[in-house]
Structure formats: C-alpha cells, structure tokens
Amino acid sequence: MRRRFQYKKIIVLAVLVAASVTLMNVTGKPQDGPSFWGSLFLKASKPVSSAYSAIVGRFESLRVAFADKEALIRKNEELEAALGQLRVLESRLQEVEAENERLRDLLGFQENAPGDYLVAEVYGRDPSKWFSSISIAAGTEQGVVPDAAVVCQAGLVGRVLSVGTNVSTVLLLTDPESGVGAVVQRSRDLGVVLGGGGQDSLTARFFSKDADVQVGDLIITSGMGSKFPEGLLIGEVVSVRIPQPGLVKEAIVRPSVDFEHLEEVMVVGR
C-alpha cells in the first residue's frame, strides 16, 4: 500500500515535469509576434503604463527643476538682464536713427537755403498754459541774438525772445504775442500772421479786404520788418473769412511746423 502511494507520487511528479517542459518548449519558441495572450495583456496595460510613464516623467522633471532651482533662477536673471540691455540698446538705436534723420533733413534745408544757420536743441517748453515758447540750448556764446528768426526743415518756428549765455527763449508763431509779416505766395497779397489760436491754428490778417487768398494757398514770410528773412514757409490757408463787412479779410492758416514735436531748430544768422 505504501509502495503504491510512492508510485503515485512519482507519476504526479513526472506529469508535472513533463507539463513544465512542454510549457517551456511552447513559450520558449521564437515567434513572429507576441502571442494572443501577450497582445491582450499589452493592450490592456497600455493606458496604465502610459499614465504611469507620464506621472513618473512629471515627477522626474519636477525633481530636476527643484534640484536646479538656484541655477534656473540665476539663468533667468541673466537672461532678463541681457534682455533689458538689449531693449535699452534698441531704444537708443532708434533714437539715434531718428535724430540722424532729423539732422539730415536740417542739413538738406541748410544747404538749399541761403544764410548762416545755427542748429540748436530744444530742451524745454513754456511752463504756462497762456503762452507758447520754447527754450533752446544756444545763447550768446553760440552767436544767438535777440529777434533772430528760428526755423526748422518744415518752415518758420518763431523768433528769439531772450538770450542767455548758453540758452535762449524762442517765441513760437503760435504765441498770442507773435506777429509775422506775411504774403500769399500765389497772389503776393500782404498781411500779417498772428498767433493766439492754439498750436495748430494761426490767423492771417490781410491789409486789403480784396486780397486774393484761397483755401490751399501757401503763406510765406514777406521779409518786411526785417525780423524774418523773406520766403520762409509759414503755413497753408484752411479757411477764409471777412469778420465784419468793410473790414480786412482774414484767413485761418494751418502752420507747416508741428510745434508739439520740435526737437531741433535752426537759428538764422544775421
């Protein structure tokens, strides 16, 4: 009985070994692709493994980020400093380019117009809302004299009101105290151009009510009164009116100069 039981054990063991060998042979065979069960397992586990990889990847990058935080902050600061310097350089470059362009224009004007001109930088404006004047960085040392005409490439700016050693005040055409002898370029009718109407409006008052002046006419300096040279552009007529019957004719003139954006001007030598 005992012997029989031992045989049974041996038989079971042999079956198990045979089954194991068979299984090993089956699974150990080279195949063209994964088995059915393998494929099924791969398909089922793909989302899980993807999510795991993603999470692990995030944690890994976070770990690296925290580990290199100091280095990253330093790098960021360096880059921001470099960017700031580049911005400053870009701004300066643009400023130099604009100045270069303005000076070229002034040079062109200077070459085409007769007389001596002194280029001066505008550095201040009238602190009062009632008057229109600018301060320029040129005075007696540079040869500026009172009442000298001041122009820019666009036309007449005004005249020198007061002169210091290295600074001068220029009364703009738009100032309520300004008055310039003028002439209509087309018809040669004489008049006077007055300020006091704001930065974009002048009033031309003609000596005759029959003056031939039309919208679009150019108004230039007449040269009378000796303060301003003849032929400097003042502006363009935008409207004509006769304020009261029998009185002189008036025209509203848009100045050719943009008084709000003056940066360099030229003082006309005497």
Binding site: K129, W130, P176, E177, L194, G196, G197, G198, S201, T203
Partner: peptide
Amino acid sequence: TWGILASRGIRIAAPYFLRSIWIPS
C-alpha cells in the same frame, strides 16, 4: 487772466481759450 491779457493786447482766440485752457483747467 484772459481778460487782462486781452486788455494788454495779448489776444487769445476764444474757442482756443475755452477748449484748451479753461475746460481742461
């Protein structure tokens, strides 16, 4: 101020005075 300036011959156009000086002030 506008009146004093006008009386001294410094004339500021009324529309400009109203639009650009008085209203903003």
